[in-house]
């Protein structure tokens, strides 16, 4: 059965996609993020602008499309998220 994802879980999913799929070092496109993030285009673009605004993602403006790369603050967030997720799971809860 499908599970609801909390907002913080969605953010962590998007950030880890931006980190893991950026193999060539020139960022990840919205299509890849959409495919991995499992959400609508409208919701994803809104979330991306929020993440760029808060400094968790870096926006790389290309000629036609924008690409996204995880920022050092984003990496730090994922590390903290992992630790707190571990902590919450120990108590049988989901972050």
């Amino acid at each position: 059965m499908a599970q609801y994802r909390t907002q913080v879980r969605i953010i962590a999913d998007v950030l880890s996609t931006a980190r893991d799929m950026n193999t060539e070092g020139n960022g990840v496109g919205v299509t890849t993020l959409l495919r991995k993030g499992n959400m609508s285009y409208t919701r994803m673009t809104k979330l991306l602008s929020e993440l760029v605004g808060s400094g968790l993602l870096l926006e790389l403006n290309g000629e036609k499309i924008s690409k996204y790369m995880i920022s050092p603050k984003g990496v730090q967030f994922l590390l903290a998220y992992g630790s707190f997720e571990d902590f919450a799971t120990s108590f049988g809860l989901r972050l």
Binding site: A80, F84, A88, L93
Partner: peptide
């Protein structure tokens, strides 16, 4: 304290309840 730090950094409601 640890849960509250988690709330501040991730805004998780599960940690807030904990």
């Amino acid at each position: 304290y640890v849960s509250f730090r988690g709330v501040r950094q991730t805004e998780s409601s599960a940690l807030l309840r904990l």
